[in-house]
Amino acid sequence: MSFTLDGVSQRYITDSGEVVHALADTSLEVPTGQFLCVVGPSGCGKTTLLKILAGFLRPTGGEARVNGSAISGPSWERGVVFQQANLYPWLTVRKNVELGLKFRGVGAAERRETGQQCLDLVGLSGFEDQKTYELSGGMQQRAQIARVLANDPEIILMDEPFGALDALTRERLQMDLLQISRERRKTVFFITHSVEEAVFLGDRVLVMSPRPGRVVLDEKVEISKKYGRLLPGKELRSTPEFVGLRDLIAETIYAGQAPA
């Protein structure tokens, strides 16, 4: 599944009646199977953009489309991984992961099987019947990812999903996510505040300007293609291409932040 933004913009009206221009006219085309990373200073409209794609928010200007048709609301085909795990504490880990399938009327046996596969995939075997609030932050985030994967959405929208995790857990989840998204040819929209993470994960990286957010840099990441995607993470990160792109992005962000 591909998606398109056609001159999308967003103005919020705050409780005090003030108008906040969060997102400037943004146009974008993201083909099926692309892993798109978005970076930018906080408050630049990244989450706003994700909400529009998820269908939680109707943009005040322009139109967002999936496979050519306008987004009119949330859909299971666009799974969302939130910054906070958002698991339902009244359900066990397993029930959380199976919930999407349940919503969609999938039978119990199939739910169980698919759910288990996804739990295994994210390394939560043995924790199926735990209470969610008894899991560590990293495990909760894994469970949330499993919950989204169980639904097998074509597009995965992720809002700084690894931001609150320790370095080791983050690296492991990055590798898992990369593998899953490639194997299943998912289109991924991935927000992060880590330039390094964006270059490491993305096929393409967008940099957004401070509010009102607009795209100031749009770069393809060809590094892993060049190295045949064989390089382990650590070595990839020290190639000149990686370092060069990382510095370019970082400079672009800082340049944008400097007072005009």
Binding site: A54, G55, F56, G73, P74, S75, W76, R78, G79, V80, F82, Q84, N86, Y88, L99, G100, F103, R104, R147, V148, N151, L157
Partner: peptide, 14 residues
């Protein structure tokens, strides 16, 4: 929390 509701909606909940 709004995100709790959004999460369910994007999983296909009516």
């Amino acid at each position: 929390r709004e995100d709790s509701i959004h999460a369910a909606r994007s999983m296909g909940a009516s």
